[in-house]
Amino acid sequence: MTEKIELVLDAKAELGEGPCWDARTGILYWVDIEGEKVCAFNPTTGENKEIVLDQQVSAVVPTLNKDKLIVALEKGLFYLQEQTEELQLITEIERNLPDNRTNDGKCDAYGRFWIGTMNKKEEKEQGALYCLDTNGEFTKKLDNISTSNGLAWDKNNNYMYYIDTPTQKVLRYEFALDTAILGKAVEVVDFSDEEGFPDGMTIDQEGMLWIAHWGGSKVSRWNPNTNKKLEDIELPVLNVTSCTFGGGNLQELYITTARTGMSEEQLEKYPLSGGLFKATTKVAGMQSAFVADSI
């Protein structure tokens, strides 16, 4: 299924995360959480523009306005003007929980922005999953979350897939696109026998899930209807964090990685840790959605 894997940027990111492809411009946005950077990678030129902020940033998604991004900082959601690097607060998040920060975030097909939180000391069930609706309403959708991570929606928007990393499971929620209401949840992937932990996630046109292995040196492809793994993509790094489809035909899987917390021996073994990789696939992915202008 996967033809080749290549390092496209030896970024040496501390905690590369949150890749999001803008099909309008051919730019891959991603973040270095601990490096406090929002990055815009141009595959054509190889240029990686960096916007350095003054706090950790865990997610970035373009808006329908091409000059404006939405970013998740430690304690809030902000608009980021890409040209001027100006930040504008949209909403604060968990100001009453100083040991929490935001983590993975993604936009649904309606233009809503979903963002999860986690405890910085990795204490369990201290986080939550929130949704910023197109009318500006900010609502808690799930509670007692430990490490809110991968999000994906099927092409018909009947289901939302979700990862709370320490549970070692992917859950599929019934999903109503017009209301953002989450219904019944069922387990569709059991990661307990896998190497590493499930981190970020994306979905392809066939409805298969692609899951990054934190501590497992790979991305794996799964059939959520059968709980069967279909393929492994091995990478020359230890901590694989997330992935998304890009390129003109959405058959280039961009993969972020991390080097944070690794020992000198591990870094010697995996010198490309923190790099941005690309795998060419035979199946096309789903196009990333953009945040609505009305928020």
Rank of each mutant, 00 (worst) to 15 (best):
K218H: 10
A292L: 00
T280W: 01
F113I: 09
V188Q: 09
I145D: 10
P224R: 01
E17R: 10
K169R: 07
K155V: 14
L87A: 04
A152G: 14
T241D: 02
L7G: 12
V186F: 08
N96I: 12
L73Q: 06
L250Y: 09
K4N: 10
S263Y: 05
W222T: 15
E94W: 08
N225H: 09
N249W: 00
R112Y: 11
K141P: 12
Y254F: 10
G216Q: 00
E122H: 06
V8E: 15
L142A: 10
L129F: 00
I93Q: 06
I203L: 05
S273A: 06
Q266H: 00
G183Y: 11
Q168R: 11
T147W: 02
T257W: 12
M201L: 06
A23D: 15
F41V: 15
T134L: 02
R95D: 03
T44E: 08
A258R: 01
V186W: 04
K120L: 09
L89W: 02
Y162I: 11
Q88A: 08
E47Y: 08
D178H: 05
T202F: 07
N119S: 14
T25S: 10
A11Y: 11
N119K: 03
D108F: 00
L15P: 06
L132Y: 08
L132H: 06
F78W: 06
G116I: 07
K37C: 10
Q287I: 09
G275S: 07
L97C: 08
D10F: 15
V61N: 03
I203P: 04
T256K: 02
T280Y: 02
E122T: 10
D10N: 13
P224F: 05
L235K: 04
G46V: 15
T202N: 04
S220V: 02
E137P: 09
P166A: 07
Q126F: 03
T134E: 04
T202C: 09
L142C: 12
I233L: 06
N42I: 07
N157R: 12
G246L: 00
K106T: 15
L209H: 12
R101A: 00
V71W: 03
L87S: 04
G200C: 05
N42C: 01
S58E: 10
W21R: 00
V61Q: 07
E125M: 04
C20Q: 10
E122S: 09
L28M: 15
I203W: 01
E85I: 11
E85T: 14
T117E: 01
N103E: 15
T25W: 07
G274Q: 06
E50Y: 14
N227K: 02
